[in-house]
Design a protein around this nucleic acid. Sequence first.
DNA 1: TATAGTGTACTATATAATGCATACAGAGGA
DNA 2: TCCTCTGTATGCATTATATAGTACACTATA
Lengths: 133, 133
Amino acid sequence: MHTEDILNRIRLENTGVPIYVQLREQILRLLGAGALSPGDQMPTMREVAVALKVDLNTVRHAYDELERLGAITLVRGRGSFVAEPPAAMNGRAAMAQTDTLAKQVIATALAMGVDPATLADRITALAGKENKP
Amino acid sequence: MHTEDILNRIRLENTGVPIYVQLREQILRLLGAGALSPGDQMPTMREVAVALKVDLNTVRHAYDELERLGAITLVRGRGSFVAEPPAAMNGRAAMAQTDTLAKQVIATALAMGVDPATLADRITALAGKENKP
DNA sequence: TATAGTGTACTATATAATGCATACAGAGGA
DNA sequence: TCCTCTGTATGCATTATATAGTACACTATA
């Protein structure tokens, strides 16, 4: 809905994982879950830095990677905005890519002793949490 | 099951996550999945270092944390051994583990431009096929 | 006893990450 | 224009991470 949703949902932990990686992953997840729509303004780098009590450069590191991944767009003087979805969603190539990733995930799940079907359910639940009905 | 199972299943990636954290998490998962039984000998620190081409000190960092978490026991001059299961790893932790993997998969999917929900459907479909040989 | 294999413990070096402070440059509104 | 907000860019200090090399302490076995 609003940028506050992003800020309120990010939780930084002390697990040895770099802060900018945690930011990158969690924001990616939130955007995928539909917390913001393409074109919506992202929370300002300074907003994130202040809200999460993290350095501006650390936020910038995360935002830079998000832009490199095509998830957001940085505009000097204006702000950061959610990019259009990667356009790869249509076509046969996308299906092949999805299947490849699916097989990979299944292999990982089996190696971990996790039931793939259960995992799939959780993916659906976590990814669809904030989808607008 | 042998220690080689551990070595063969560990995959280190270039995602900004420290190597010792990747080792810690993946070994934890493998042990939780029953790759080795309590009392079994873990791969030697030097074995891990050589097999994965990382420094002995880095492996030690991971093993130290695994011991601190109660997952393994380090015995000087003899080796490292799988500790008794913390008893908590079987109930709730399994769900948490599934959720963690689900979140990782979602992040990966988004980075690849794949819709998580679509991916979940494909996982269900493909897993159903392969589970009935 | 002697040897090989184990975990343990340092030094040293290089790079990355983080925080803090200080700016600079472009966009947009009063 | 002036002001404020934005992203962008430094410099500096500190800590964390990773690698390399060397050595020590302990265990088990030949």
